[in-house]
Design a protein around this nucleic acid. Structure first.
Lengths: 231, 231
DNA sequence: CGAGAATTTGAAAGTCGTCAAACGACGTGG
DNA sequence: CCACGTCGTTTGACGACTTTCAAATTCTCG
């Protein structure tokens, strides 16, 4: 279940990040522009396996990535889904604690961790930004623990939908690039339960299920449901 | 076969101090010595509440601390337990994402985050160490997500006992300063289930329950149970 | 249009939670 | 020093939410 041969997709050189009209770099990670490489990967390709030496870290340009922890018997926990702009592996020890796979075809910027670390030693601002990224990841992780440890199935689904919606420009049309199984393994549920809960939400008139995503009809109803153990 | 890291879960465990041949312990956090203050708190006292501005961060000198997230209706998730040497709040955004409370009477060293950050900007080695601490926290958090999302009650208990044992000098006599309710809220279970599972382990001859802790009679049996969904 | 995969729905089973009560440890006061 | 009250732990019976197993339906894509 671990490392597929590292035959990556197309690897291409890339120009730097988008420069803002004004001329000033607005992104603290801009200092990395010179040491990165742009890469395209097909759907379901592994960025890295669980246990791999952490040589690289990444920033998603487009597409969706999932992080995965596996048990020997096949049980799976999806740690999270990364979208455009999200970073991966910047705060990692010697080896990756989880695998990362492309949910859709993805374009990403790849950096050598060695170089990032060296750069961080010279640029306190970058170092600080890396700490902030880690802090945000940690905050999200604690929220997820609460969800996995204490929330009911319907609360998990509602929470998830609101989370994804908050990360996408459109408030109400939510794109779900990942399959039900991924969502289930992310929320600590089964595929069937995810389906049932979403169907339930649809019957209640809270959402509309569409191929590739859902439409949120009532954010208040979802928010209510995200913290209410009863249906 | 990729690695299945079996790590303990909690906030900012200090790395083992490597002893340098010369004879001095080289703790990267030694640079903080001058800006810290030693504090003693009684049992159940809050270090900080959920949502508090994150003015301070801490390092446990002695005793045990629990981190807690609360929902409005009272449901509680204990993020982790901190023991002597562990750090808390070094990688935090503007406000604390969770509360921290003394499980036992504790002695701790308190630092002003502002000063730590300033110091980190000047000392790349400290900055790097802070990133490492965050990385360890994050790794632990991912392990916990797998536990909360996919492990059965007995697996959770076995995992927990092994984790605590690994952090204490004595391999087999494990001190549990926290009550059953804390353990339950840490593992996403109820008090009753925690009791039942521990009783079960005792009847199987795997552990002996003693006031204030447990004695581990068979680590292999526990390790087996930590990854086996069946009893 | 057709095959395979993903999603959805249904029925039955099981694990864990809920409710309730007994038991035990501990600290205070008599 | 022991009685007693309180709090935490343990045990039991029952119930329910979720899972499991199975099958129908829909979607995707060649």
């Amino acid at each position: 279940m671990s490392g597929m041969p590292q035959t990556t997709g197309q690897v291409s050189r890339a120009a730097g990040w988008q420069v803002i009209p004004g001329g000033k770099p607005a992104d603290p990670l801009d200092v990395l522009a010179g040491i990165g490489m742009t890469i395209t990967l097909p759907r379901d390709r592994e960025l890295h396996a669980q246990g791999d030496r952490a040589e690289f870290c990444y920033r998603i340009v487009s597409g969706c990535v999932r992080t995965i922890k596996l048990m020997e018997d096949g049980r799976r926990q999806v740690g999270g889904f990364l979208l455009a702009g999200d970073c991966l592996g910047f705060g990692t020890l010697d080896s990756h604690d989880f695998a990362a796979e492309a949910v859709t075809e993805i374009v990403l910027r790849r950096y050598r961790r060695r170089e990032v670390e060296a750069l961080a030693d010279r640029h306190a601002a970058l170092a600080r930004h890396l700490r902030e990224m880690a802090a945000r990841d940690l905050r999200d992780a604690y929220d997820r623990m609460l969800l996995l440890g204490r929330k009911t199935a319907s609360e998990r689904i509602a929470t998830f939908l609101l989370e994804v919606a908050a990360r996408q420009a459109s408030r109400d049309k939510v794109v779900l690039p990942m399959c039900r199984g991924d969502i289930a393994d992310h929320l600590g549920l089964t595929v069937e339960t995810v389906c049932r809960m979403m169907t339930h939400l649809q019957r209640e008139g809270t959402i509309v299920i569409r191929p590739g995503g859902v439409e949120l009809l009532s954010l208040p109803a979802l928010r209510q449901m995200a913290a209410d153990p009863r249906h």
